[in-house]
Design a protein around this nucleic acid. Structure first.
Lengths: 224, 224
DNA sequence: ATTATCTATAGATCTATAGATAATGC
DNA sequence: ATTATCTATAGATCTATAGATAATGC
């Protein structure tokens, strides 16, 4: 593998594990056992590495969120969207963590991310339309549907942050991919009141599969 | 005013305006025109300043979220909760921005924030119960209500971050308090399907007052 | 006497580059 | 010849403290 590729992979790993803020170019080169100078030969700076990782993420999620033009959507489709989007979120989870700071320092990223958000919201909107056509959920007025899509986006993109902060005392508690996917439970909660009778049972059963194991007991004060 | 108080106020201002990450103890002392040594005489480090600001925030929100024991809740109560919570969020908006990093580096804060989240979720839950008793929204099974409360929490605490990232190209665009309160529109969107006919019109009218002016056009690519 | 403040600085990073050297591709 | 890599380092911060000095409260 080319050094350039290695730098990207290693950076992604370190960013995801420790957070972008806690990973310097020194850490990356040390982890790869190359010199800092070598890293700077391949990338102008840390921002450039991040920007390239973002582009990968953007492409991945864009691919996941394409909707078929020729047919309505099924419950299985919906599940597929949720599973794959949370997979993508997991793989690039560092991005949504220090996002504000990243955007602050990179105009390209700021612009691209804004457009990315717009495309994702449109896609969520189309998915709701498709599910309504497929008889899974009630059809809603455009205005309400857009506000719902935005709520879905907020829940999806911030579930990880919630888990981290609500997690136990231990600093080193790693969130698992399985826990991340419990966000699907929360997203489906948003749909519950709109489910059509014919599919209500099926979707509720699907939702149950993602129910968090330790619901709100994790909020209790630590044992003395 | 005592220097200690000044340090807290000035830190809060700078953190809110520039983000905690971009504000060092040097910046704070420079802004106050005191020596760094003096700042360290009053606070052991930056974490201690942040912790004290968090405690103020915790107390403020705790006060806002108390529920009356002796009567059900009205639409006016609900509006009051939303307005005051978003006010608090505004005053200490830096906290939810770099939260993960703050928690990572301060065990006290980590523990306190976890319990704070638990209390807030309980309060939201009680508010939903109160509104159901008051005939404003349908009563829901405990499980659904808890999941709904968590979604409310996610929308409330992350609306600010969304605004920042979705905001225009300019790095210096400051979010206004008014825009922050458009988050109320999103929270009320969560309640729409559960509204009882008797209050449906009233709540929908309330919601309209918070509708964002520039809905999704802000997502469009920048003009060429 | 105690409390508050300042000056000066050590020590720890981090970023990013210059310049030398090694490896590779014609 | 070009591409890749390393060594060494300048310059910029930031944190946190030691030690001196000033201000205040009995």
């Amino acid at each position: 593998m080319k050094t350039r590729e290695k730098i990207l992979l290693c950076s992604l790993d370190l960013f995801n594990e420790r957070g972008e803020r806690n990973v310097t170019t020194n850490h990356i080169s040390a982890e790869l056992a190359i010199s800092p100078g070598n890293l700077y030969y391949h990338f102008r700076n840390k921002s450039d590495i991040i920007y390239e990782l973002f582009q990968q993420y953007e492409q991945l999620v864009g691919y996941y969120l394409t909707t078929p033009e020729d047919r309505p959507l099924t419950v299985a489709d919906m599940r597929g969207y949720l599973e794959s989007v949370f997979d993508g979120l997991w793989s690039y989870r560092f991005l949504h963590r220090d996002l504000e700071h990243l955007l602050e320092n990179d105009a390209r990223l700021r612009q691209d991310y804004r457009e990315f958000t717009g495309r994702c919201l449109d896609a969520i909107n189309r998915i709701f339309e498709g599910l309504a056509e497929g008889g899974v959920i009630q059809s809603q007025p455009e205005e309400l549907r857009q506000a719902m899509s935005l709520n879905v986006w907020l829940v999806v993109t911030n579930w990880m942050a919630f888990l981290k902060t609500a997690q136990g005392n231990n600093r080193q508690v790693e969130i698992t991919k399985r826990q991340l996917k419990q966000g699907i439970y929360q997203v489906l909660t948003l749909e519950v009141p709109y489910l059509m009778p014919a599919y209500r049972g099926e979707v509720l059963a699907l939702r149950e599969q993602y129910r968090p194991e330790l619901p709100l007991t994790m909020m209790e004060p630590a044992p003395a």
